[in-house]
Amino acid sequence: MSGFQDNMRQSARGVGFLALVIAVGAALAIAEPRFLSSASLNGIARHMAANGLAALGLTFVVIVRRFDLSLPGVAAFAGMSMGAVIAAGAPLWVAVAAGIAIGAAIGMVSGVAISRFGLPDIVTTIAVGSICAGMAFLYTGGRSIFQNFFQVGITDLNDARLMGLGVSLWILLAIYAVAWFVMHRTRTGVAFYATGENPVAAHFSGIATKRYVALAYVLCGVCTALAVLLILAESGNAETNKGANLMMPAYAGVFLGAAILGGTSVLATLGGILLITMLLDGFALMGVPYYYSDGMISLILLAGVLAFSDTARGWLASFGIRRAFRRSAPGEKG
C-alpha cells in the first residue's frame, strides 16, 4: 500500500520534472526564438555531454556525502596533459587513456587522504585542485596547445554524428547507462548509498566504507577528465582555463536534480543537468554575459532546492500558504 504511494509520489515527481523542462524550454523559446533551432539544440546536446560527465562524477561523491571542489584544477591539468600527449604525436586513444589515468590518480590522492587519513574533504580538494591548476602550466607555461589536434581526430568527438545525434551525446548516454546499472541495480550501488547515509551501520554490515569513499573520488576524477576531453574536442585546442566553467553547472545539476526528483541518483543528475544546460545555453543565446550566467544558475539552484525541500515547505506553510502545499504532500507526518 505504502509502496504504491511511493511509486505514485515518484511518478508525480517525474511528471513535474517533464512539465518543468517543457515550461523552461517554452519560456526560452519565446524569449529567444533561435533557442529551438537545430544549431542551438545540437549545442545543448554537446554542452550537456560535457556538463553531464562532470556532474556524474560529482554524483558519486555527493552520494557518499562528501564534496569535491577540485574539479576546475583537475580539469585543467588533465586537459593540458591530454593536449601535450596529442601534440607529441600520440594517437587519440593514448591521450584519452592518459587523461583517465591522471583523473583517477588525482581522485585517488584526494580519496585516500579523506577516507584513510581523515582529512576534511573541502580543504583537501581545494588544495589538490589548486596544485593541479598549477601543474597545468608545466607543459607550456600557460600557452594554448593545438598542434596535431586536427590530424589526431579529436574534433570528431564533437562533430561526428550517429543516427542523427552528436557522438558526444551517445558517449554521455552510454556512460550514464552503465552508471545507472551499477548504482541502482548492483551491490556496489547499495554499498555506495549505505556508506553515505550511515557509515557506521554500513561498516557494521561488512561494507568497506573507506574504499567506497576513495572510489567515489577516483570516479569523479575520471569523469572530470572525460568532460574536459569533450571541451577540448569542441574548441580544437587545450588551454589552462578549459575546465573553469565545469564546477558550478555540475553542482547545480546534482542538487537541482536531487531536489526535483527526490534524492541523489544517476537519473536525477541527468535530469538536473538537462535543465541547467538548457538555461545556460538559453542565456548565452539571449546575450547574457557569461559572467552573469553562473550567478543566475546559482540563483536558480537555490530557488529550486528551497522549493522542493520539506523544511522550506513547512516554513512557507507557517506563513499561511498552507493550502497550496498541502495537496502536494499527502499523508506526510506532522
Binding site: R185, T186, R187, V190, A191, E197, A202, F204, G206
Partner: peptide, 28 residues
C-alpha cells in the same frame, strides 16, 4: 550501528549479506 534509518526494511535487511542478494550475478 544497526540501521540506515533513512532507508526502508527492503534496503536494510539484505545489507549485511549483499553476496546472497546478488547470488553470483552482477545485478541484485
Amino acid at each position: 550501528e544497526g540501521l540506515v534509518l533513512s532507508r526502508a526494511a527492503l534496503f536494510n535487511v539484505p545489507l549485511a549479506n549483499l553476496r546472497r542478494a546478488a547470488a553470483g550475478r552482477w545485478s541484485l
